[in-house]
Design a protein around this nucleic acid. Structure first.
Lengths: 185, 185
DNA sequence: CCGCTCATGTAACTGGTTACATGATTTA
DNA sequence: TAAATCATGTAACCAGTTACATGAGCGG
């Protein structure tokens, strides 16, 4: 059973083959998501494990002067990728995603009311700013003609939009709470 | 700097104090999110680290026959919790969440068109089923009177709803792609 | 020639995972 | 009395993190 990172690396190799390990790393580094660091200490060992398991294979290259290895997915690697995509999906993929903001909100009572508002406002503003970056990227992806790349961008958009709308609701609910208590007292 | 798990454990202790480590573990075990296993091997060491760092303290209890330790957050723990909640939030909390489904969709081209549809349909159906569970929970949370607990549920709802809508869009886009190619050929 | 990017790693650390283990208490 | 839950751990494993390190090629 491969880890999420290994699976994703395998997918990236397959999408960009033939490509260097560095190219794979670049995809993680350039990603708008901060979930993986894309550190060399993660990518190179992962690629080596994939090669050890026969899911990718590499050939030395020296064409443009620079020495490097070009990786591509093997037949077995493609089968593995397909098995990973095919239903039934694991719970971790089909249930509910982890949202550090949602977790924090659970404990927001620890902050005085004024600071609660500030926290929500800050998060909302940062998410809205990030949304603009995602929008730009997605527009570019749409032009690229790769339907899947575009759809991934749409998913990110929708996800962040939902978060922003949720923060608005939260601000609203907390406002009501405050005025209710304020009126009552 | 505490890990996400340690921070969350600290928050759970604070919300339920005084409580046993097992009670904390139960919260993770009962959570609708599958992000953390809630395994003993994660929770007990995390609680011990928090106590070592003076963020929680414990007292032995023997009241109802059973011997156990009751934890509560210290003043320092509460300060730490507040600092964690206060802006500026780290990028990991304010940028974009990791979505294993989104990652998979990026590589969906590896599957033949028919199976692509099946994968999306499966994910959609499972998410919709999960959404019902979340709805139930959230209605109960609303009745509990804890605004934050309720808002967390609303966030989960909105997040999953957004995913479902996104999958519908994906199915639609792929359908168009297919018919476009089908007509062209 | 200086700095950036390409390209590939290694080393130490640590936190979370699974699996194992124990014993008391409640419940069917 | 058997099973489930409460309650608390330990041990082995391993993947991903940060940080360090090297060297070639290229653009200003």
């Amino acid at each position: 059973m491969l880890t999420d990172l290994e699976q994703t690396v395998l997918g990236v190799v397959w999408l960009n083959q033939p490509c260097t390990a560095y190219r794979v790393r670049k995809v993680f580094l350039d990603s708008l998501s901060s979930h993986w660091s894309g550190s060399a200490g993660a990518i190179y060992p992962a690629v080596r494990r994939l090669e050890r398991d026969g899911l990718v294979r590499s050939a030395a290259r020296r064409a443009d002067g620079r020495a490097s290895r070009l990786y591509r997915a093997t037949e077995r690697g493609l089968r593995q990728l397909r098995a990973w995509l095919r239903p039934p999906l694991p719970d971790a993929a089909a249930l509910m995603n982890y949202d550090p903001l949602r977790v924090r909100l659970r404990f927001l009572a620890a902050l005085p009311p004024e600071e609660r508002r500030a926290m929500i406002a800050d998060a909302r503003q940062r998410l809205a700013a990030h949304l603009e970056r995602i929008d730009l990227q997605t527009r570019a992806d749409q032009a690229s003609g790769d339907a899947f790349r575009y759809l991934v961008g749409r998913g990110a958009q929708r996800s962040v939009e939902a978060q922003v709308a949720w923060l608005d609701e939260a601000a609203c609910v907390l406002e009501q709470e405050a005025s209710r208590r304020g009126d009552g007292a």
